[in-house]
Amino acid sequence: MLDARLRPLFAGPLDAVAARLDHPPLTPDRLTLLGLATGLASAAAAAAQWWWVSLALWLVSRAADGLDGPLARRRGVRDAGAGGFLDITCDFVVYGSTVVGVAVGASAEHGAPWWPFLLVLLAYYVNGTAFLAFSSIAERSGRTIDDGRSLSFLGGLAEGSETIAVHALWLALSSVAWQIAAVWAAVVAVSAAQRVVAGYRALR
């Protein structure tokens, strides 16, 4: 919901940081893999109940994820297929592992139930299926949505900005992480339904 509004605001700062990082040893794919590594480390830290360490690693992970695209554009990468594939795959791994890490940590420290986190994973699964299927079919049928990203993204109530914020929130407030997860699962489920309806209508 917020991505379209926030992306122009962050474009300038991200481009400026990418310019400083634009040195031969660092590549866009290495930035993507840095985001993956720090994201997995964040999940592990959450499982160990190192909440503030996990939060710091989560923010570093998402910063790296936001910088790989600007760096690729600076390098003049025209075919973003491989990089885009790696980026979305790493995103799914990081999001899913973070949910599991928080569930493990919150259950061990606060006795939190697992079912809200399982619902989040189910909602992520349906949501991801909807927009990935749409992107693939839209590409073949010439109905792509070009917003500068590698895939055709259908807008929804829950997008990247909201996901980053919610994951940060339950790391900062681990004692109520399962309650946050329950609400978040409902929000993502609504977003998934929006994408299924919008995608079906767009492809008719």
Rank of each mutant, 00 (worst) to 15 (best):
P25V: 08
Q49C: 12
W115E: 02
I137K: 11
W58M: 14
D65I: 08
P116Y: 12
G160P: 04
V93F: 14
L9F: 13
R140I: 02
R7P: 00
A47L: 05
A63T: 15
H23F: 09
G105W: 11
A193M: 10
P113H: 07
G101C: 08
G105R: 11
D146F: 07
T89C: 11
F85K: 06
L171F: 12
H110S: 04
A138K: 07
L86N: 05
Q179A: 14
A82I: 07
S150Q: 04
P28S: 09
L31V: 09
A193D: 02
G111N: 11
A64D: 06
A18R: 05
A106I: 01
W52C: 00
L33Y: 15
R5Y: 13
H110V: 04
A16S: 06
I180S: 03
V102T: 14
G76P: 01
F10S: 10
I164S: 00
V102M: 11
L33V: 14
L86W: 04
L6W: 13
T38D: 02
H110F: 15
G12C: 00
P70I: 08
I164D: 04
L173Q: 08
W170C: 07
R195K: 13
G35A: 05
P25E: 03
V94P: 01
G81P: 00
S174T: 10
V183M: 06
V17R: 01
G83N: 03
L55I: 03
G199P: 08
A189M: 08
T89H: 02
G142F: 02
G96N: 13
F153K: 09
R149L: 13
L14R: 10
S42L: 01
R143T: 03
A56D: 06
S97P: 03
I164R: 00
V126M: 00
I88A: 10
A185G: 08
